[in-house]
Amino acid sequence: MYKRYFKRLLDLVLALLVLPFWLLMLAVIAPIIYIQDKGTPFYNAPRLGKDGKVFKMYKFRSMKLNAPDLRNEDGSTYNSEDDPRLTRIGKFIRKTSLDETPQLLNIIKGDMSILGPRPDLPEHMNLYEGNEVRKLEVRPGVSGYNQAYFRNTVPWKDRIKNDIYYIDNLTFLMDIKVFFKTAISVLVQKDVFVEKTSNSKES
């Protein structure tokens, strides 16, 4: 019952309650992004949603305009505190996770949930093996079990295993635990960046 109906209702109610505060945040962050790099404050990226449907995920842009596309060896997005592609405000919003807050709009639209597996790139559909496609059984989340407990410290394939574990054990109590663990993780700013070179992009 929670997984099929109540979770979506809770997402929508909480997102609408937070929306006025996010609009105030937008009024502060968006002009700073524009002033520093003279470009759009948003980064809109195609991502895999529930049942494999591709949607446009919203983020505050943290990288310079026309930054090169770099990826890790496993195909996941590159993420480093010393990434020269980051703007000054970009480094701050990445570290504080404020760059993810525009996904509030994705929650309202029904593309995403507050909590769920982090969405993959559309091309990752061809890289799923065995039951890994099961991570698409639920709406992707702004945060989730893997983000809360492991953040960016585990390889992409291990993240998928954690996503499937979350789906198999999804309850209201599980989401409460993940929510508070996420809050702690964001506050202490632990494991935000991965100090490892390869090839990636704004994630």
Rank of each mutant, 00 (worst) to 15 (best):
K109N: 04
G144A: 11
Y149A: 02
T153F: 07
L136F: 14
L136N: 09
E129Y: 07
L121K: 08
G110Y: 12
P117Q: 03
G110A: 09
F150G: 03
D120S: 05
H124C: 01
E129V: 00
N131M: 00
R139V: 00
L127T: 02
R118W: 13
V138T: 05
I114V: 05
N126T: 02
R139M: 06
Y145L: 05
F150W: 14
K109T: 01
L121E: 10
M112K: 07
S113H: 13
N152G: 08
A148Y: 06
R139K: 14
L136P: 07
S143R: 09
P140A: 06
N131L: 05
S113C: 11
E132F: 04
E132T: 01
P140Q: 09
L115Y: 15
P140E: 06
V133N: 13
N146P: 03
I114D: 05
P119F: 09
K135L: 12
K135Q: 15
M125P: 01
G130A: 02
I114N: 14
H124G: 00
V138H: 12
V133M: 13
M125Y: 15
Y145R: 04
L136C: 06
S113R: 13
V142N: 02
L121A: 12
L136S: 04
F150H: 15
G141I: 01
N131P: 01
V142M: 15
G141R: 08
Y145W: 15
E137Q: 04
L136Y: 12
E132V: 00
S113M: 08
F150N: 14
M125W: 12
Y149Q: 02
G116L: 09
R134M: 05
G144E: 08
N126R: 11
L115F: 13
T153Q: 14
I108R: 07
N152V: 03
V138I: 08
L136E: 03
N131R: 12
P119W: 11
E123A: 00
Y149H: 14
L136H: 12
G141L: 04
E129I: 00
G110S: 13
